[in-house]
Each structure stands twice: as structure tokens, then as C-alpha cells.
């Protein structure tokens, strides 16, 4: 009888140890962490400098004076948005009979339009979407009619702005 009891106890111990070994295996724990990245709207435009002086000083007899051009400056652009455009405007309108035109080289996927500059903003590049490009040419053209007469040197300021392209 005693022997039977001892045997029963031994079995119970072995079983319990086995159970302990099983439950000693780790219950999986977990943790969760969040991450987020906020990317601001980026619309940057810059020009390389100022063009040289534009001078209208020659003509072919019987024709309007020859236009003067300057393509010495460039612009750079970075935008991470879609359907942006560049407008251009003068600080002071040109005198009657004298026109200052500008043509920008279009970045990839966009459209450039030659414009006569005034104090009213005009679209010079449209359809700009998610790009970064530099060294894009800016070509100024100064033209005058004979009737415009002479103009002493006058400085003008051109403002280029990148804005939403609209519908």
C-alpha cells in the first residue's frame, strides 16, 4: 500500500514539472509603435540674377526698330504639388509703344507662353506638377515702335510667382 502511494506521488511530481516546463515557454508579448511623416507643401522659385541692359538702338530703314534680347538668366523650381503655374508682372507699366516680353523655358510636362509684361500678372508657365529643375532659360525681348520715341534708361522689376494653376 505504501509503495503504491509513493508511486502515485512520483507521477504527480513528474507531471507537474512537465506542466511547468510547458507553461514556462513564453506567452508572446507585443507592443505597437506609431510613425508619421508630415511633408509640407513645397513651392520654391528662384532666378539666377539680373539680365543685362536691353537697348533698342538700330533699325532697318522702313521697318520698326530692331528688338533687343537677353537670355543670360535662368530660373530654378521645386514643387511637390500638382497643377501649379508661374506668373510674371512688372512693378511699373512700360511706356506707350515700348514692350518688354518674356519667355521662360518650360519644365518637364509644363507649358510655357511668351507674354508681354505689365503690372497685371500673366501666366508664363502652366501645368507644373511635382518636379525639381534648374537652369531653365529666361529670355527677355525689348521692342519699340518708332513712335515711342527715345527712352532714357529705366529700370524695371519683374516678379515671378508660383501659385495654384486653378481649374
Amino acid at each position: 500500500m505504501r509503495i503504491v502511494r509513493k508511486q502515485q506521488i512520483a507521477l504527480a511530481v513528474a507531471t507537474a514539472l512537465g506542466l511547468t516546463a510547458i507553461t514556462g515557454a513564453h506567452a508572446a508579448g507585443s507592443a505597437v509603435q506609431s510613425f508619421n511623416v508630415a511633408v509640407a507643401a513645397i513651392n520654391e522659385l528662384s532666378v539666377s540674377g539680373n539680365p543685362g541692359t536691353l537697348t533698342v538702338n538700330s533699325a532697318t530703314a522702313g521697318s520698326a526698330p530692331n528688338a533687343a534680347t537677353d537670355a543670360s538668366t535662368t530660373y530654378a523650381i521645386t514643387s511637390n504639388e500638382t497643377n501649379k503655374k508661374i506668373t510674371a508682372q512688372l512693378d511699373v507699366d512700360m511706356p506707350s509703344g515700348i514692350t518688354l516680353g518674356v519667355l521662360l523655358a518650360a519644365p518637364t510636362g509644363a507649358t510655357a507662353t511668351s507674354q508681354s509684361l505689365s503690372t497685371v500678372a500673366a501666366d508664363v508657365v502652366t501645368g507644373i506638377s511635382k518636379l525639381n529643375e534648374s537652369a531653365k532659360s529666361i529670355t527677355y525681348t525689348l521692342s519699340a515702335t518708332a513712335a515711342a520715341g527715345t527712352l532714357t534708361s529705366a529700370g524695371k522689376q519683374v516678379t515671378f510667382t508660383i501659385i495654384d494653376g486653378g481649374a
Binding site: G29, V32, Q33, F35, A41, I42, N80, N132
Partner: peptide, 15 residues
């Protein structure tokens, strides 16, 4: 700039 603008998020699970 060609592929990202706005708020992006998610979670990481450690087990």
C-alpha cells in the same frame, strides 16, 4: 518631391 506631399502614417508591431 515627385512622390510625396501630405501626411503619412502607420504602425510598427513588435512581438
Amino acid at each position: 518631391v515627385k512622390n510625396i506631399a501630405g501626411l503619412y502614417n502607420g504602425t510598427i508591431s513588435y512581438v
